[in-house]
């Protein structure tokens, strides 16, 4: 009985938290489903202007096939390419770096970790202006590499920290056993350490991907048209005239970019939780 009571208590306590986090998302979905007239007219909506009486897909056709197509579809591609490449490079680099930090004893080991931490504390906005000037000189402004590089910087410290905690809890004996069994250092890493670290690498990759995916500051300042990602592109949506707000289209685009995130989290939530807690709990 006692456990049942606590179960229901916990469920009751989580309801407000779920409402708190879910309502904004449902609101965006609801708004994206409203027609232009419904956006302005309360009579066409239920629950006090919340949900449209008749669902309209106009906003979605607007961003995929309509007037906003040229702005949104390339931006979506840019987002996908930039984030995947940045994540891949940053995770590969972080894996090697974290492995070295966890296993080897070399001078400057602490310095690397502290530098990584300091870099991630540095306010992003402070770096944008100098980067903007630098990028113009180097002809990196408004190019995909011009975004990938800052995203690597943004995600690398985070990845190094998560992964080095992860490597540290893989018993060293495992690797030594492999070496005694006849493996070279590289074989021991590939055949024993890497498979064991896979959940950690995966978690890190997902977190790095989200960080890049959700970034607005770099994208809006370092790109103009040819390399804009979705968060920045949303900002440059305009209505049919300067008197109409592109609310519906923005919400539809926001829903579209949220979907991959939600799918990833739902698919891999177990792994993410395991990856995040594994440093703390001895398993």
């Amino acid at each position: 009985m006692e456990t049942n009571k606590t179960k229901w208590g916990l469920a009751g306590a989580s309801v407000p938290i779920m409402l708190w986090t879910l309502i904004p998302i449902v609101w965006i979905v609801a708004t994206s489903l409203k027609s232009t007239t419904a956006l302005a007219d309360q009579q066409q909506n239920v629950f006090g202007n919340f949900w449209p009486k008749s669902i309209s897909w106009d906003n979605y056709s607007l961003i995929f096939t309509g007037g906003a197509k040229d702005l949104f579809v390339p931006a979506l591609w840019h987002s996908i390419v930039v984030c995947l490449v940045a994540t891949l490079i940053s995770v590969v680099l972080a894996t090697f770096c974290a492995y070295a930090i966890a296993r080897l004893d070399f001078p400057g080991k602490k310095a690397i970790l502290i530098t990584a931490l300091t870099v991630s504390f540095f306010p992003v906005i402070a770096m944008v202006t100098p980067l903007f000037n630098l990028w113009r000189i180097l002809h990196l402004f408004d190019t995909l590499p011009g975004l990938i590089i800052p995203y690597i910087t943004l995600t690398l410290p985070l990845s190094i920290w998560i992964l080095s905690a992860f490597f540290q809890q893989i018993p060293w004996e495992m690797e030594q056993a492999a070496q005694v069994d006849g493996a070279s250092s590289w074989q021991a890493f590939v055949k024993v350490v890497a498979p064991l670290a896979a959940p950690g690498v995966f978690t890190t990759a997902i977190i790095a991907f989200f960080t890049a995916w959700n970034d607005f500051v770099f994208s809006s300042n370092l790109t103009a048209a040819r390399a804009q990602t979705v968060p920045a592109a949303l900002n440059s949506f305009t209505g049919a005239s300067q008197f109409t707000q592109p609310t519906g289209a923005i919400c539809a685009a926001a829903v579209v970019v949220t979907i991959p995130v939600v799918i990833l989290v739902l698919l891999f939530q177990r792994r993410i939780v395991a990856g995040l807690t594994s440093g703390a709990v001895k398993g």
């Binding site: 018993p171 004996e173 495992m174 030594q176 056993a177 492999a178 024993v192 498979p195 064991l196």
Partner: peptide
């Protein structure tokens, strides 16, 4: 090894 160091995967 003392803790056997078996490969868990």
């Amino acid at each position: 090894f003392q803790n056997y160091a078996l490969y868990p995967h």
